[in-house]
């Protein structure tokens, strides 16, 4: 059942039609999540006892940092699918995720730096968390560079998939860096097993923003993937029928 769905999803016309139907819904939900999350975070949540209003950068920084790792895992998973089953859609998701992941990583690094200057007293330190996150940005950029260096895009996707899979090793390092080593970056506020050490009125907007960012990624990756797919399949029959009546 699941395998059949995956095979169906691997068919370009089916993927194009399904993603077209999903996009308006995703966009609506994303908009609502961002509106409620931002209102909750910037207006309703109280100021922090030590940081005052500066803590509100958490509503961009933390979701962006989570997304930088989440998008990488999606990318690596698509890479495995592309290598094992040679699914064209997986190759497209893989490479189009890399741009978005790089942007999220960059955003996490920049917002962290802006917060770090007044709070820590420095823009940047070479501690384990910051360094491994910077390494993640370079992995994304490496994936993009390798992909554009190879002309045959199907071969390029396979080469990139191997690079993406090798880089997976960095993800647990980023996640556990604050526990394994002494770092300037603080430990995790929200963990699976413990009560989060953040006030509920601050936590709910943060979770809303985290989900909003996931939807934003889904929307952008689908839009990019549809574009890429049409371009690659521009000489095929289904694309010709799609655009026959000039729509």
């Amino acid at each position: 059942m699941i395998m059949r769905f995956i095979y169906q999803l691997g068919s370009p016309p089916y993927f194009y039609a399904l993603s077209g139907r999903l996009l308006p819904w995703l966009s609506g939900i994303c908009l609502i999540l961002f509106a409620t999350g931002l209102y909750g975070g910037l207006v309703l949540a109280p100021a922090d006892y030590q940081q005052g209003d500066s803590f509100r950068i958490i509503y961009i920084h933390v979701p962006a940092a989570w997304m930088s790792m989440f998008v990488y895992m999606v990318m690596a998973f698509s890479g495995a699918m592309a290598l094992i089953w040679r699914i064209k859609i997986a190759e497209i998701i893989l490479i189009n995720s890399a741009h978005i992941g790089a942007v999220f990583t960059f955003l996490a690094l920049v917002t962290g730096s802006i917060w770090g200057k007044p709070m820590w007293g420095t823009w940047w330190v070479w501690d384990a968390r910051l360094t491994s996150e910077l390494l993640l940005l370079f992995l994304y950029l490496g994936v993009l560079a390798l992909y554009s260096a190879i002309d045959d895009k199907r071969k390029a996707a396979r080469a990139v998939a191997i690079l993406a899979l090798v880089g997976v090793v960095n993800i647990p390092i980023i996640h556990y860096s604050v526990e394994w080593w002494s770092t300037l970056h603080q430990g995790p506020t929200i963990t699976k097993f413990d009560k989060p050490s953040i006030d509920t009125r601050m936590l709910i907007p943060l979770l809303l923003m985290a989900v909003a960012h996931k939807f934003l990624y889904a929307i952008v990756v689908l839009l990019r993937a549809r574009n890429d797919l049409l371009w690659r399949e521009r000489r095929s029959q289904w694309v010709a029928t799609l655009f026959k009546d000039g729509s």
Binding site: P46, Q51, F55, T189, D199
Partner: peptide
């Protein structure tokens, strides 16, 4: 900074 966030 520690991992605690709370209102004053």
């Amino acid at each position: 900074h520690d991992e605690n966030y709370m209102p004053p």
